[in-house]
């Protein structure tokens, strides 16, 4: 094979490799979210209430303990799981019970969930329960929202102020 044929062959193969890189580094475009759709993200990291009640320790019990461990109350470490339900336009869209993290189940319960909705007006209802010893949901929120296409609505729980938030 003469040199010109070799150069042409090499040029074609380099061009083919360049085409593969150039094309597949940006094409085809990926439709991550359909047009006219919006996204609701439910996400919180919240420590549920203690699963058991704290117990006052008697003087005799405290006396048996080393001086540095004489706390007046003895509390269990385990936390309640956190339950959450979301209604969108009156229909249950998501329901989840998040277990506390940690080997002793004493950490925060974390939730992250994406819910795709049509852009436009919606009525969002959120119910959250973080105390296994209470009846019903501990926190609720109902709110009307209007979502533009591709907009993200974040449903969170503000642990400091003990309230559900929509952002």
């Amino acid at each position: 094979m003469n040199k010109i044929s070799i150069w042409i062959g090499q040029g074609l193969l380099y061009a083919a490799f360049a085409a593969v890189i150039g094309i597949f580094s940006q094409w085809p475009s990926y439709q991550h979210l359909a047009p006219e759709r919006a996204l609701v993200k439910l996400s919180f990291s919240h420590q549920g209430e203690l699963l058991g009640e704290c117990v006052e320790q008697s003087l005799e019990e405290l006396a048996k303990l080393p001086p540095n461990m004489r706390a007046p109350k003895r509390c269990p470490r385990e936390r309640s799981p956190v339950s959450v339900e979301i209604d969108i336009d009156g229909v249950l869209a998501h329901q989840q019970v998040a277990q506390p993290s940690g080997l002793s189940s004493d950490g925060a319960s974390a939730v992250y969930q994406r819910l795709e909705v049509a852009a436009g007006a919606h009525r969002i209802g959120v119910r959250l329960k973080d105390n296994a010893r209470s009846e019903g949901f501990d926190y609720t929120l109902e709110q009307d929202v209007t979502l533009a296409p591709a907009e993200i609505l974040v449903i969170d729980f503000d642990s400091a102020h003990k309230r559900i938030t929509l952002q």
Partner: peptide
């Protein structure tokens, strides 16, 4: 822009 979803992205498939 974390307030919106990048709906269609020119993905690097490689």
């Amino acid at each position: 822009d974390l307030a919106t979803v990048p709906s269609a992205v020119p993905l690097d498939w490689i």
